[in-house]
Structure formats: C-alpha cells, structure tokens
Design a binder for these strands. Structure first.
Lengths: 371, 371
DNA sequence: TCTGTCCGTGAATCGACTA
DNA sequence: TTAGTCGATTCACGGACAG
C-alpha cells in the first residue's frame, strides 16, 4: 500500500474522462491498486442464428454488432480472463467488481472470476418488469439478467452501505433480486437518425442501486465497457469519480454529450421507480403448485349448480368446457365473463370454502414478507 | 434411434426405484439414450477445502491460498464434468436437463454444461418468497437460486409445454423468474429426532413446474442426487416414471417412506392445455370440398385492405397474386409470412367471419368422431 | 387539458413437415 | 440433404395522435 493520500493518488488518474482504444491495453496503462469499484458490462456472445419476427411480422432489431461475435467459447474465455486479470490489478485491496451478463456468458464470467482470485459476494438478479416476450413460444420469457458482485480478495473489507440500501427498499433489507424496468423512453439515447444509439443501454436505476450500495462519495469507479456511459452518468450524479474506456467512437461521442448535461445530485434525474403496486396478481395455478388444491379435486360453483375438476396446469374441466377458472365459470353460466376467484369453492372438512380464501392467504404472506 | 417401443425400452430400466451408491457409476451402468429428463441438485461443498491429489495419487502440498483455491475448484470441476458427461450419455436425443445451484457452484456448472455440448435453453431464477435474511448485514439477502435448463444438443426438439405453463400463470407466458416459497411446514421432512431430514430439501411446487413444463406423462425422469426424493414424489403424482440415485442411506430411507404415501393424480387431472400446434392439420381445400366455402367466393383480409377470390383447388387469386391462403396473405401484406387462417374472413348474413372458425368446426367433428 | 387508441419496441442463442 | 410450404406466435410501456 502506498502512503499517498487519496487526492495525490487520484491526480495520476484520468478522472471523469473516456479513454479510447482496447480496454485491456488501457487498463494495463493505469496505476495498480487505484480503483475502488469496477462495473463491467462485457459483450454477451449471444450467438444468434437467423432473423426473428414478432407475431405481427415486424422484425426484431437484434444485437448483431461485430463486438459481440466470438469465434468460440475458448476465444471468449481467453478474452474474459485477460480483462478480468487487468481489472484486478487496478483494484485497491478492498475494491470490488460488478459484472453483468445473461446465460450466454455469465457462467463463463463467473467461473473466470473465481479462477482469477476474486471472491464472489452475491449474484444479483435484475428482474425486468418489461422484458421482451418469447415470440415463438419455445422457451421461457427471458426476463432477467444476472450480475455478479465480487471483492478483489477473500476476506477484503469491501464497501456495503447496508442502511442506505435498506432505506431504498422501504425499510426492508435489500434482497439479491431487483425488479427494475429496462431502459426506454427519454432515457434511451438516440443517434442522429433517431435510432437507438446503443443496442444494450442499461437503465440508470440499476447503476444507482449498485453505486449507492457499494461505493462512497469520492470513490473512483471504472467501466471498461463504457458504451453510452450510464455508469459515468450515475457516478457523476452521485458525486463519484469515473473512468470510462470505450473502443467505438460513436458510443464515446454520445456518452460525452450525455455527461455534459449531467449535474451532481440532480435528484430529478434519479427517479427510482417506486411505483405503488396494486394487489399482486396471484395465478390460480400457484394454488396447485403450492399444494393448496390438488389436481383431480372438484370445485363447486357458489350457487351449487355446477362443478368442475382441477387439472395439473391450473385449468378446469367441466361438462364439455375447459379453460381457466374464469372462462369455465362464464361458459357454465352462459355469461360473457365471470370472476372465477369468487365463483368457485372447494370442500374442506365438510365445509364449502371460496377459493379466494387461498388467494388471500398467499397475498398475506407476500405482505408479511414484502418483495 | 432404436425401433423398440417405449414400453420395451423402459423394462430395461429400474423405474420408480432408488439406486444406492455413487451416481456416476450408477449412471454408467444404465442404458444410453433412455432418459427423457434429468433434474439434478448437485452438492457444492464437495471437498471445497480438501486436498488435491496428483494423477499418481501423491498429495499436492498446498503452498499458498491461491493454489489451495485452485485445487478445490479444480476438483469440483472434475467432479462436475464427470457426472454431466455420464448424464448426457443417458439422455435421449431430444432429452433435457435441469441443474439447480447457487453462486458458489452454478457458474462452474453452467460453463461445464456448455463445454460438454449441452445447449442452454434458459436460466431460470427461483425467487424465494421467504428466504433466510442476511443476519450480519454484510451482503444482500440471498433470496434466489439459479436453475439451468439445457437440451442434450443444439437444435434438439426438446419438450416444452408452453400452453400448460401459460395456463399455470393465469394466461400470461411463463417468465424466467419464478416466485415460490421455500420448503417448510408439513412438506419439510423430519428425521427420527424431529430435525430436518435434509438440509436443502426443494419444494414440490418447484418440481411441479419443471415437470409440467418439460415432460409428458409416461416420461422417465432421472435424479442423480435424489436426496429425500422431491423429484420422485412429484414425478409419481404427475404420472411420470422416475429413477433416483442417492448415496446416503438415511436419505434413501426417508425418501422411500415418502414415496409410498404418494398417489398419482387421476387421468383427467393430468391432461393439460395444449397448443394449436398439436391439433391435426386441416387443408384449406377441405372447406371447399365440404361446401363450407364456394369457388368464386371472395375473402377479405382482417384489416379490410385486401380481397381475393377462392379457386376450386383451394388456392386464392388476388391482384397479381395467386397461391395458398398463406402465400397470398403474405404477398399482399409485403410480409415474410402470414397465417392465412387468421388473416382471411368471409361474409355470411352481412357479417364478417374468420375462416379459422370453419377449421375449428372441422376439428371439433374430428374429435367427436375420430378418423 | 384530458382520455382513449394505436403503434412501436426491447441483450433472443425462438419450426415442422413433406416432397 | 435441401427446398418449399404450412402456419404458430407477444408483454409492458411510452409516445403520438385523435377526439
């Protein structure tokens, strides 16, 4: 450890600038043990095949940029190992790193982090409130991305602002899954043509939580895959210093323009979506999955005129009708619609109980243990 | 592929039993390409601080922390690679695997899956509604575990019951983040002393969703780390066959007792919603042959912008375009493809009716009077 | 100014069958 | 093996525009 003060050390650093060129070379040229936090959003190596269309036949604007293409897993691994090694040299002994990725690359990144000597503190799941659906119905909606938070070394005294995060989370301890919307609307940067300036711009709310939680004011944050500069923008707002590295000139240009407009502590720009939620939706299927009702069990209508049997996928089957609790109720009553939750009952110990009671139980659980 | 029937193949398998001993040896003794789905919850604390032995079985002297760390990861990787390789040999060509883990091991498992030739379909986050809090306030509450779903090969026709999962989720397609409670209460198995029988018993709700989504009734499900048998229990309920492998006698005993009590749901209850893809194909020409539509009659596009005339052979002719209902629809819209069934309408009694209605009529007849 | 409707779009490893 | 054809498939928002 050097005996220089923070200020002296930092004067050797190109603070609050964007460096061009290759991130590994650039990192190797910076002084060791000088960075408090690294946030990295490396290429995901998506390996996309053909085009994809939405059901309305519009074409999905996929990530087909050259920077995301690697010849093989081996070459991706090599690249990952190299930049993680360079990054680790830059970290102060109590420094930490965040890396974000999807299932295409995150397992390789996580293994490389461990191999290089980083110590994983948490994996954090960014659950997207508005992800792109799976258009062909062939897989689960890809509704999350994974972030890995790791300290430089095992046993390091990393920064973790527990109380600040708890406050951000309405007084409850922050969990490893964060629900945040993707970057859209005015926040999404456009190029001269009005197209999105970067295919994978991250929302500021995500970086806000990362930086509040794992840095202090005055800390130096490095982003080796700077893109359009979300990390820099949020760092500047929050009074942290940043260093960006970005190879593509077009991205640097957009980022520079963006950063000029940012003011420190501009609270308005830091809106963290805390939209008051309505009563959470509870799918009927959860009552079956949770064993509150059994497949094969019979439900009875409130008026006792109809009955239907529960199937393993949470649909009902009655006389000649099958479908959701709402649809079957409506068809049996000859009504245009029906609230299945209040229409159907089940039997327990000789008593008839509305299924809505079970939904209330689940909601009560969710209230007791929010999030 | 063999020409044996499912029944013949399955008689070679120790169905619905728990095998003892080492899972890799046991897997190697089973016939190849015989398993539809594998669900695996591998241990991650395997000798994590243990000794590393050279190939000649001499012990490596752990000189420093870095080497010790490397040694433990190395041995875990070896173990992971070995069981994944054995598992892959057992899978049918269209078989698939689920592996569950936490940040301690899931990155190494995911990378090994990719290295062994599995093709990742999704990573799915089990988001625990009631996790254990982080008592020391040093990290985020560890509130999720990660599951990886992968097919044996790229391009395989894996099983995915899209409509059943959608039904389970109240009509909205299932996402990659599942909110389910951890295993507690009566479901949590106890040993003779009243202590929990297994440290990481998985909830049945989790397996219910996995098995409904990625198997069909009669499929064979293997769990090489059977534990107290949640996979077997849910498989039995859902009319799937299982094979369990478990090394610890205490767990096998608890699992056996548990499985005895399980009853399979009745047949109706196991029927789930299916997609239109599974419905029989109806050529458009049949509507003309059956006199439901007449040659010379005009069809109108959904958006009323186009029309075309029906020809006797079941093709359409519009302005400068002729061909199938799909081809003409696509060309008129300038779209890469078009589902003619939902695109075209005909007129009856002044009303506009989608031609798909006629197809539904034919399909209903086919169901009532097969062949 | 407000409300309702329509349209656009987001890190995506997104067919099956027959000739 | 390949080419052609059939035909299945989407959720949450934000912005623009019309009334």
């Amino acid at each position: 450890m050097t005996t220089k003060t923070r200020k002296e050390r930092n004067t050797a650093l190109p603070l609050n600038t964007i460096l061009d060129g290759d991130c590994i070379e650039r990192m190797n040229a910076l002084p060791e043990a000088s960075i408090d936090l690294i946030f990295a959003d490396p290429p995901y190596n998506l390996q996309l095949r053909g085009d994809l269309h939405r059901p309305d036949n519009s074409k999905v604007d996929a990530v087909d940029d050259a920077w995301d293409r690697f010849a093989s897993f081996e070459s991706y691994d090599q690249f990952t190992k190299a930049w993680l090694k360079a990054a680790r040299r830059l970290l102060k002994p109590n420094g930490a790193i965040w890396v974000i990725g999807s299932y295409h690359n995150i397992f390789r990144v996580g293994a490389a982090l461990q191999n290089e000597g980083y110590w994983i503190l948490n994996d954090v799941v960014w659950r997207k409130s508005n992800p792109m659906p799976n258009f062909r119905g062939k897989r689960f909606t890809n509704a999350h991305e994974t972030m890995i938070w790791a300290s430089r070394d095992e046993g390091a005294k990393y920064t973790f602002n527990y109380e600040a995060l708890k406050a951000l989370n309405e007084g409850v301890q922050m969990r490893s899954d964060w629900v945040l919307p993707i970057c859209t609307g005015h926040e999404r940067l456009k190029d001269e043509n009005g197209d999105k300036a970067h295919p994978t711009q991250k929302p500021e709310s995500l970086l806000h939580r990362v930086l509040i939680g794992s840095t202090n004011p005055g800390d130096v944050v490095l982003d080796p895959f700077f893109g359009t500069g979300t990390t820099g923008a949020v760092a500047k707002m929050l009074g942290r210093d940043f260093i960006g590295i970005e190879r593509e000139e077009a991205y640097r240009k957009v980022a520079l323009k963006r950063l000029e407009k940012i003011r420190k502590y501009d609270k308005d720009a830091l809106q963290v979506s805390t939209s008051k939620r309505a009563e959470p939706r509870v799918p009927f299927g959860q009552l079956i999955e949770r064993g509150m009702l059994r497949p094969g069990e019979e439900l009875f209508s409130m008026n006792k005129r109809h009955k239907a049997k529960i199937r393993a996928d949470g649909t009902l089957i009655g006389d000649d009708v099958k479908g959701s609790i709402h649809k079957v109720g409506a068809e049996l009553e000859g009504a245009p619609s029906c609230n299945g939750w209040t229409y159907w009952c089940f039997r327990r110990d000789g008593k008839t109980v509305p299924i809505d009671v079970l939904r209330q139980q689940i909601r009560a659980e969710m209230r007791d243990r929010p999030n």
